[in-house]
């Protein structure tokens, strides 16, 4: 199925214009980042508002290696995953002792604090940040193979691989242990699950995936700087995860597309209404936040899960009405 998806994406990328290809790359990056949140929050039950910071860790790790040692790009991405995973393991060790709002607050403090560290060390380039250049697409792909298309290919491939990994993880014994711990920690412990270790593991893996997303985001922007990883990024990832249905990996593309599409939609709406500039620039933020609240209130488990539940209910009703006839 994932291979099929890859083939479809390959043909699509040949047909649309540059802007759409770039947006496609951004969507792929969001897919990765959101799946890391779904793994952590939806399955393991831990809330992180600091995934933007973990993405920054991955991005800086990749950029520093690229600049200082000129490593091949694939190695940079691997290191980005490892660096963020180490950061996630440290954070997860603290997080396993916390729950709910405490964890949210702690990771929030991290998200605000960490990017400022970039100004402390010269190697990280301060406010301006670092250049992150993955290089031109290989010549073998032809003359008219553009840079953005190359970004899209890398990001889409990474997205497919990470979705495959996450999917398998979630349906493995680890995934079951996470869900058990989320549902009832004491019962999970009675069943022989080391919930503390399982939580740290979830945090580590989630952070690693976020690190990959960070490095890919840096690739599409071309630079790594503190301003590329604001608090708002962490928030919009959470929004994307909630919109996707936080307990269903299958909906992840919904959240990613919505996050990329909202600024465009808001732009169109604002122009139709002929509103002032301050409205235009802030409409996307308002829509994202408003959607977040409405989703939590009215479709708390996300559209995919809601649809599935409705179908199940419908089927049950159908079955019972059949029974009545007999």
């Amino acid at each position: 199925m994932f291979i099929l998806g890859g083939v479809v994406l390959y043909f699509l990328s040949g047909m649309v214009d540059e802007l759409r290809v770039y947006q496609g790359a951004t969507i792929a990056v969001y897919v990765i980042a959101i799946s890391s949140i779904i793994l952590l929050t939806g399955y393991s039950g831990q809330v992180s508002l600091g995934h933007g910071a973990l993405m920054a860790v991955g991005a800086y790790a990749a950029a520093v290696l690229r600049i200082e040692f000129n490593l091949p790009i694939i190695l940079c991405f691997v290191v980005a995953v490892l660096a963020a995973a180490i950061g996630g393991a440290l954070l997860g060790a603290a997080a396993a002792r916390l729950s709910g709002p405490y964890l949210a607050g702690t990771t929030l403090a991290l998200a605000i604090g960490l990017p400022s560290l970039a100004n402390q060390f010269a190697v990280l380039g301060g406010e301006q940040g670092l250049l992150f250049d993955v290089g031109f697409p290989p010549l073998a792909l032809g003359e008219d193979f553009t840079q953005y298309k190359w970004f899209f290919w890398i990001a889409a491939l990474a997205a497919l691989i990470s979705m495959w990994v996450v999917r398998n993880l979630l349906s493995s014994a680890y995934g079951r242990a996470w869900r058990a711990g989320r549902g009832n920690e004491v019962a999970a412990q009675l069943a022989g699950i080391n919930t503390a270790r399982s939580k740290v593991l979830a945090f580590t893996i989630s952070a690693g995936i976020a690190g990959l997303a960070g490095a890919l985001l840096a690739m599409t922007i071309g630079t790594v700087s503190p301003s590329a990883f604001p608090l708002a990024l962490s928030f919009s990832l959470l929004t994307g995860a909630v919109l996707s249905g936080i307990t269903t990996l299958g909906g992840v593309i919904i959240g990613a597309v919505v996050l990329v599409a909202i600024p465009e939609i808001a732009d169109v709406v604002a122009h139709r209404l002929g509103s002032s500039e301050s409205v235009t620039t802030n409409l996307p933020g308002l829509i994202v936040s408003g959607l977040l609240i409405l989703t939590v209130l009215f479709v708390p488990n996300g559209p995919v899960e809601q649809h599935r539940a409705r179908k199940a209910k419908h089927a049950a009703q159908h079955a019972s009405s059949k029974k009545d006839k007999h």
Binding site: G100, F235, T247, S289, I293, V296, P300
Partner: peptide
Amino acid sequence: GPIAGVAPIIATLGL
């Protein structure tokens, strides 16, 4: 439901 624990956090962030 599974989201009950995180719903208030998400809602206040949205706010």
